[in-house]
């Protein structure tokens, strides 16, 4: 009896300490390697698609301005952009959402959470490597994307999205630049929803819905990360009733400014209605210094806005992951 007690005590002492991260990393790899490999294949496929379309884009080819084939290419480009926009959602849905939801659904959380490893350690060993790996893969892909998009920004190649500025600021492409893209491919949202909902398929659906809502919110919000600037552009009124201004203002090359609104107005900024414009002669409009008032985000803010988007996405992911840990710990003892 005494011997047993001593052995027990010795055993108790040996139990001190923490399960090493290396061993937990193996568990994460073994449990999620299927999803992880699948995810990386999607990234590789997207990367291959970019290279395949990017090389003719950069060389002498049919995609140049004026070539009759360029409009077919536009369709392919749009499809490719759509696919890339789906990647963050796919990562959230197939890697993030099932991470905890499946454990809850199959009851295996009751196995995992009663082993020697602590809850927080187990959670972090699962979430952090997967989040970092997918963000790194996303950053790699986004670098390739920016090389690919660069040709459109130059204004030399036909852009299916209109003005060169649209390639930078446009809703379809702003978040496909490296920083925002890596930020969007965070698993925090999926993991958190999986922990809350505890059922895989509803958690995946909720992740999709939340990504879309968040994407829409970001699209409307990103033009206001900083208060837009306002300036006037001189216009020439023609006797026929129309008006024009000198070229596409700002730089034709490079990102260009993002124009939010443009209205004709009085010199003091008060807008003038189109009815009034048509009532008056071109001479009257010129004499009264009617100008084009433009609110815009200058081209110089592009990098800053990219960083702002990355920043809030990373902060959001950190908050969601922290909330997940707190939630799981609160539910258990």
């Amino acid at each position: 009896m005494t011997a047993t007690t001593t052995a027990r005590r010795a055993g108790t002492i040996a139990r001190r300490g923490q399960v090493p991260w290396r061993r937990l990393a193996w568990v994460t790899w073994r449990q999620h390697r299927g999803a992880l490999i699948g995810m990386l294949l999607v990234f590789l496929l997207a990367g291959a698609l970019l290279i395949a379309t990017g090389i003719p884009l950069h060389g002498p080819s049919a995609w140049r301005v004026g070539h009759p084939w360029s409009r077919y290419f536009a369709v392919a480009l749009n499809a490719s952009v759509l696919l890339h926009q789906a990647i963050p959602v796919l990562a959230g849905m197939f890697l993030g959402a099932p991470l905890l939801a499946r454990e809850a659904e199959l009851g295996t959380s009751r196995l995992a959470w009663t082993q020697g490893v602590g809850l927080t350690r187990w959670l972090l060993a699962k979430i952090v490597p997967l989040a970092v790996l997918s963000a790194l893969a996303a950053a790699g892909l986004a670098r390739e994307l920016s090389w690919w998009l660069g040709q459109f920004r130059s204004g030399y190649v036909v852009s299916p999205w209109g003005y060169p500025s649209q390639v930078s600021w446009g809703p379809a492409l702003f978040d496909l630049h490296p920083l925002p893209f890596a930020g969007w491919v965070t698993l925090g949202l999926g993991v958190f929803l999986g922990a809350v909902i505890r059922r895989t398929v509803p958690a995946m659906a909720a992740t999709l819905a939340c990504y879309m809502a968040l994407g829409y919110a970001a699209m409307s919000w990103r033009t206001a990360y900083l208060a837009p600037l306002r300036r006037t552009v001189p216009v020439q009124f023609s006797p026929g009733g129309g008006y024009g201004y000198s070229g596409y203002w700002g730089s034709r090359l490079g990102p260009g400014p993002d124009i939010l609104t443009s209205n004709l107005g009085w010199p003091n900024g008060r807008p003038i209605s189109s009815a009034q414009v048509t009532q008056h002669s071109a001479a009257w409009l010129t004499v009264n210094h009617i100008k084009l008032w433009v609110t815009y985000q200058p081209a110089s803010r592009f990098s800053l806005f990219q960083a702002i988007e990355f920043g809030w996405l990373i902060v959001l992911a950190a908050i969601l992951i922290t909330a997940t840990v707190v939630l799981i710990r609160r539910r258990a003892a």
Partner: peptide, 10 residues
Amino acid sequence: LRVARNLNLT
């Protein structure tokens, strides 16, 4: 079994 082993100290 190996997953469980890696989740425990003893």
